[in-house]
């Protein structure tokens, strides 16, 4: 009896899956399997998943299935399922950079084109077709370029890093550290928001710098939340910032609240980390001209002077507080 129940349960679980897989043959749609992280991982991921959903829709000529999980093993299982289904393209943002070799090879053997997005995998480049990634070093360089172009007599910068050792932290910090080494700026305080890129920790870093009597005129926070925390510390200490203020503030990630703060002159700039690889990948697929190897996305930096409502609408992620609303 128990065994029968088990079989029934398995049938119930996989039945629809099997049916849908076989029912959609000859439909003329491009079959895509997407293996991604869950949207609740971050605001970035939420925008990323949303873009995947809207781009790879039936209306756009796709028959796409998406699996969102933070477990590498579940991701691999899902990828194998898609390979068995015989998808045309397999899109992967891996939870863990290792353990994918076999899966990628079997996809290759099956003639499935694998496109990695957002996150690289430690494997030979021959194991996948292309990888569309954010270039953290480029983001850092662009942001530092902006800092250096600020027309300040002397740049005294507070560096607020993200989770130590993460790809984003390494890339974004490197540019600042190099500029300091080259004598182009001074880092007066070097702190981190910790593993959760914490607003509160960032605030403490700036508060400690203020308490120590540090003179600074730039805050370089490696995400928007930490930039917000830093500015809260400035506010509480009565230090001016933003447009016409003493301290120039830059954040990362293009949260809409951050962009509105930039627009309002409360902050000065924000650097993009683009979660919307979907459109670019779709363009590749439609054109039939898929590059090979690692491709970096083009990413933008907006300042109070350059930002527009349309930019915020198009490029921002997460909720929009509305024009003129400052998130303190």
């Amino acid at each position: 009896m128990k065994k029968i129940l088990c079989v029934l349960a398995v049938l119930l679980a996989f039945g629809p899956f099997v049916l849908s897989a076989s029912g959609q043959e000859e439909s003329g749609l491009i079959k895509v399997g997407i293996v991604n992280l869950p949207p609740e991982e971050s605001g970035y991921r939420q925008a990323n998943v949303e873009a995947m959903n809207s781009v790879f829709s039936e209306a756009n000529g796709y028959d796409a299935k998406q699996t969102n999980t933070g477990e590498n093993s579940e991701q691999i299982a899902a990828a194998k399922g898609y390979i068995r289904d015989g998808v045309d393209y397999l899109l992967i943002s891996a939870a863990n950079a290792s353990g994918w070799d076999d899966t990628l090879k079997s996809a290759k053997d099956a003639g499935i084109k694998v496109i990695l997005f957002d996150r690289a995998i430690d494997t030979a480049t021959s194991n996948y077709q292309a990888a569309l990634l954010s270039d953290m070093a480029y983001e850092g360089n662009t942001a530092v370029e902006w800092v250096l172009g600020l027309d300040l007599d002397e740049i005294n910068l507070i560096l607020i890093r993200g989770q130590m050792g993460s790809a984003a932290e390494i890339g974004r910090s490197a540019a600042v550290l190099k500029a300091e080494k080259d004598g182009k700026l001074n880092i007066v305080a070097d702190g981190t928001g910790g593993d959760s890129w914490s607003l509160e920790e960032a605030r403490k870093v700036v508060e400690a710098a203020i308490a120590a009597g540090k003179d600074f005129n730039v805050i370089y926070a490696e995400n928007d939340g930490m930039a917000q925390g830093a500015v809260q510390a400035l506010e509480a200490a009565g230090i001016s910032h933003g447009k016409n203020g003493k301290v120039k503030v830059i954040g990362f990630d293009f949260n809409r609240f951050a962009l509105r703060n930039v627009q309002a002159g409360y902050w000065d700039a924000d650097m993009q980390c683009n979660p919307r690889q979907a459109a670019e990948i779709s363009r590749w697929i439609q054109s039939g001209n898929i590059p090979s190897g690692i491709v970096y996305q083009e990413e933008l930096l907006f300042t109070t002077d350059t930002i527009t409502d349309a930019d915020i609408e198009n490029w921002g992620i997460n909720a929009d507080p509305g024009k003129g609303v400052v998130t303190r």
Binding site: E40, G43, Q46, N255, F257, A319, D320, P321, T327, R328
Partner: peptide, 8 residues
């Protein structure tokens, strides 16, 4: 609602 709502 799958976003980070603003409480400004």
């Amino acid at each position: 609602g799958k976003l980070s709502p603003i409480l400004a």
